[in-house]
Structure formats: C-alpha cells, structure tokens
Amino acid sequence: MKAKPKTRIKTGLEKSIGENSVFYPYLYLLPYALFFLIFWVYPLFDGFYVSLCRYDFAETQRTFIAFKHYISLPFDPLFRASFINTFIFVLETTPLIIGVGLAFALLLNLSFLKGKTVLRVLLISPFMLSIAAVCMTWEWILGSQFGLLNYYFSQLRLPTQTWLLEKGWSLFAVVLTTLWWTVGFNTILFLAGLQEIPDVLHEAAKIDGAGRWSNFWYITLPCLRPVLLFIIVMQIIASFKIFGQVFIMTGGGPAESSRVMVQHIYETGFQYYRMGEASAIAWVLFVIIMVFTLAQFKVLSKQTIEY
C-alpha cells in the first residue's frame, strides 16, 4: 500500500479561492469587473433604453415611446445644423491635421538638422496643454478688436475679420485651433513610423537614381501605410467628438454655424434636461463612429508590410 502523500490540511477558504481552485483567476478580474460593469456595461444598456423613452429629468417617470426620438431627429433644424457642421469639421480637420503632422515628422526626421530637441518642443508641445488654455489663448489671438492676428492683417493691409463672430469663419477658427493643439500627437506617431523604415531601402533607391521626391513617393509613403491608416481613422473618430473648443470659443454661434453634435447632446440633456432625446443623439453619433471603427479594424487587419 502506498503511503498517502502528505498534504497540508486546506481550509475551506483556500479550497474555494486558493491558487488551484477554478475561481482563483476571477479574483484578479474582480476589481476591474466592478468598475467595468457599473460604469460601462450598465450605462450602455440604460442609455439605450433611455433613448427609447420620453424622460425629462424633472419628471421621474420614463415613458416608453420606442424610436420616436430617432425618427424626429432629422426634422429638428438644430440637430441638422450640428450634424452637418460636425461632418464639415471632420472633413476639414482630417486632411489638415494629418498632412501637417506628416510634414512636421518629415522635418524632424531630416538628418542634417541640428537642435532637434528644441525643435520638437516648439512643434509638438502644444498637444500637452489643457484644452481650455489652448482655446483661451487662441481666442485672445483671434480677438476682433485687439487680437494679434488682426494686427498683422492690418499691417499687411489685409481685411481684418471678426474671426469667431463671423458665420463663415467661426468653425474654421476652431479647425485651426484644433490643428495647432493636436497636430503634435500625430507627429509623434508619424515620427515613430518613419524611424522604423530601414535605411537600406532609401540607400538602394538612391543608388537606383531616385531623387528626394520619388524616394518619398515610392519608399516612405508606402512604408508608412499602416501608420497612416491607423492615424486617419483615429483622427476621424476624434474629430467626430469635437466639443470643448466649440463650447469655449464660439458657443456654437453665430447662428448655429459652428454648432456640433456633442454640443447638441450636452445642451439637450444637461441644459434642457431632455435626457431621452439627448441619449438618442448620442446613439446616432455612436453608430457613425462605430462604422468608422469597424472600417478601421477591417483595413488594419489586412495590413502587413514586408521589407
């Protein structure tokens, strides 16, 4: 007869959640799961349900009205304005921020340039600043009466503008502010992408007689493709969520010409307390963003690059 292996007598607790129990790994998930269930999963479902209800905060009763909010949204001129402006903003910022970001990264990657640490601080650092600090500084610069920009415009005998108070200019002023503020982030990503391209490729192209331009067009750009695609989609998603800049700098004006979707959510929900409608608008935004995200996953899963 074999001797029983000596084991420590296990307490009940150790048996149920000790290292060898099936429940043990879940202990590690527990703290995260608590936060996740309470502040992500539950609100997600509750938010969708609220969007199907008439629910004005003052009342405590939710009245189920199915998709009425969604159906009436397209007929709301304020929603239409915010929807269109958001798309304009996305269309303007995406190529601008990505183009300038790439240009900055190419500059910072020039081999003959000295003092790159300083250059990096000058070009990239604005993205670290607080959104309100950026907006306030630019409001001061774009000010109609004593603004810096108008001063130089008048020096150059160009027509001065009331940038933030003019229908055609206010949204564009927000676009420029956003460019200045966020371009550094994309620059960093592009720079990382550029540095991963093996030098051999450029040298081989040089030997084959490629100039700077064809080197960029046929070597650099194709190698950057994965980074580029990633940045494009991230930028589009970020641009759809524009709010703070508009809220601080223009308040959506003049005459709703710079009103955007998140602002519409904010005002409907938290100034007029129409929670149901606000949630419906948020879900429309969500669906738009989801389409772009899924497109990203589709595109990115196909990207492989071989040197």
């Binding site: 502040f39 609100p43 997600l44 938010g47 959510i265 949630s279 879900w283 963003i289």
Partner: peptide
C-alpha cells in the same frame, strides 16, 4: 480560466464605444 476569450472580447469591444454615449446614463446613475 473558463470564458477567458469571451470576457476579453467583451472588454475589448467597448474600445469602440465613444464615452459621449455614456454621458447621460452615467449622469443618471
């Protein structure tokens, strides 16, 4: 552990959710 991949997929799929969609329900909560 059991359900590892399913749970991980659940967490990762919320990467797609913009926090704007949670503003109203989180406030209510």
């Amino acid at each position: 552990f059991k359900g590892q991949n399913v749970l991980f997929f659940l967490v990762i799929s919320t990467l797609m959710i913009p926090e704007e969609v949670l503003l109203v329900p989180r406030y209510l909560l």
